[in-house]
Design a protein around this nucleic acid. Structure first.
Lengths: 131, 131
DNA sequence: TCTATATTTCGTATATTATAGAAACATATT
DNA sequence: AATATGTTTCTATAATATACGAAATATAGA
């Protein structure tokens, strides 16, 4: 899916609707706030969110299509980052300030400050082995 | 439904999710941008949007619950206005600038500059009579 | 008090979205 | 080339959202 602003830089009404829709899901908002700290691979986000990888992948695809995040490959890993969009960054900064005492957001931050790609990949492999 | 920020002024994560959800529907966004011009009664919004009154009423209820709009009674009319919320007003100002050339938004503004409550109520009454 | 009228609620149909598991895919490493 | 592994796609299902028409509600005015 290609959005108009990807071609000429101007966002249409539908672009905005899609952006607001993307922001209206708890898992997606948690991902965006985590990405404010640092870029993350899929397995790291999976470690934090505890949802199926297929579900997570769908959320990432949606936000990528909406232009909120970008991805790049690093070996077998896919690393996601926030888009270079001033308005998005300001919005997330405001949100983070307002949600300073939110337990979930606070916990997410604590977790990503401790985990590594290698560790998450290992845990994912182990949990798959048990099945 | 009562949201937490109505009691202590602080918005929770769920409050934000609901606000973004409220902003992610075209009809609701059109209503909010119209209300930036002036307060409107239900029949005026119906005249512009051309959706069923029951649908319109549901949208208004949702935005009222989310704290984006407020209503007051004036005789048989119910008049809706934007909430006194600085962040909401700034957000809508940004949106309106970005959507300056949007035909729908432009047309909505043109219509509300011409209509009156009395006219819309009359038209509504007439269309009901035909059924 | 009865009537007209502006709005809301209710019941219901349809469309969209979030979710998980299984299978498929892509690529680094052996 | 074969294998291991990180990610995505496919499929089905449950939950949620949007829509309408009909009925109910609230209130101004006769």
């Amino acid at each position: 899916m290609i959005y108009s602003y990807m071609q000429n830089g101007v966002l249409t009404l539908v672009d905005y609707l899609n952006i607001f829709k993307a922001l209206s899901d708890e898992n997606r908002l948690r991902i965006l706030l985590m990405l404010r700290r640092r870029s993350l691979c899929v397995c790291e986000m999976h470690e934090v969110l505890n949802i199926a990888l297929s579900t997570l992948s769908a959320h990432l695809k949606l936000m990528k299509n909406t232009g909120l995040i970008v991805d790049e490959k690093d070996g077998r890993w896919v690393i996601y980052s926030l888009s270079q969009n001033t308005y998005l960054h300001e919005l997330l900064e405001t949100l983070e300030k307002q949600l300073r005492d939110n337990r979930t957001i606070e916990s997410d931050r604590a977790i990503i400050s401790q985990i590594t790609r290698e560790l998450c990949a290992y845990k994912l492999k182990e949990s798959a082995r048990k099945k």
